Amino acid sequence: MKLRNNLLLLAMAGLPLLSSQAAEPTFNCAKVPAGSIEALICQTPSLGELDQHLAKVYQQASAKAVNEHPPLLKAEQRGWIKGRDDCWKAEDKPLCVSDSYRQRIAELQARYALLPATGPVFYSCDGIAAKEVVATFYPTDPASVVVEFGDSTSLMLQQVAASGSRYQGRNESFWEHQGKAVVVWGYQAPEMQCEPRAERNKQ
């Protein structure tokens, strides 16, 4: 009777029942090594929820990547897991793991267009019409943008910036400020000054 009353009080307070179960990760916590990053995820409900979220997003991405050649998604995911597990070296391990999950979720959602996008937005750079950058923005967490220039594409995640919106990829960056964009494409490459092309963006 006492247990029933406690459950009733939780329900009346609007608190979720079995919340600890809901936060369990997708892997078997009984089989993870003690002191490992997987053990930390098992012990931290918020990280367990992120693991569940990533599993759902990965499944959605897999459905879109079924005809992908070469099949990069599985290999990249194995690499990401190895990188996540390297968080044992971090001073703040839970923060490192949380950031790793959030970034991976955002990357998958943007790369495989799993969320509604803003764009594409076309930019002409350095006053040369043929020097075109195309940006498609996604409301991920952190926010992301897929930028195309020439024959290459870069997925970038939003970084903290004093003004405007700044995104960083592997060796590329995109800084949107007051309707214009500064784009760097390649390691130590010069900045390109880009402006939206009104005639293309109306299409």
Rank of each mutant, 00 (worst) to 15 (best):
R4E: 14
L7T: 06
L10Q: 15
L10K: 14
A11N: 13
M12V: 14
A13S: 15
A13N: 15
L15G: 11
P16E: 13
L17S: 13
S19C: 09
S20G: 13
S20T: 12
A22T: 10
A22G: 04
A23P: 01
E24Q: 15
T26I: 08
T26V: 12
N28K: 02
A30S: 14
A30M: 06
K31H: 10
P33W: 01
S36G: 03
S36L: 04
S36I: 01
I37N: 01
I37H: 01
E38A: 13
L40E: 03
Q43W: 03
T44R: 07
T44L: 08
S46P: 00
S46W: 01
L47A: 03
G48D: 00
L50A: 11
D51L: 07
Q52T: 10
Q52S: 10
H53G: 02
H53M: 10
A55P: 04
Y58A: 03
Q60W: 08
N67A: 15
P70S: 05
P70C: 04
P71Y: 01
L72M: 12
L72S: 10
E76M: 10
R78G: 07
G79N: 09
W80Y: 04
I81F: 07
K82Q: 12
D86A: 15
E91P: 09
C96H: 00
C96T: 04
S98P: 01
S98G: 11
D99M: 11
I105D: 09
I105N: 11
A106R: 08
L114N: 04
L115A: 03
A117F: 06
G119N: 04
P120C: 04
V121R: 09
F122R: 13
S124T: 14
C125E: 01
D126Y: 00
I128C: 09
A129S: 14
A130K: 15
E132V: 13
V133W: 01
A135Q: 02
T136G: 04
F137N: 07
Y138F: 10
V146A: 05
V147E: 02
E148L: 03
E148M: 03
F149I: 04
S152N: 10
S152V: 02
S152C: 00
T153R: 11
S154L: 06
L155N: 08
A161D: 06
S163Y: 09
R166A: 11
Q168N: 01
G169F: 04
E172M: 03
E172I: 02
S173N: 06
W175Q: 08
Q178E: 15
K180T: 13
V182Q: 13
V182C: 00
Q188L: 12
P196V: 07
A198G: 12
E199G: 00
E199N: 05
E199R: 09
E199V: 11
R200D: 13
K202E: 12
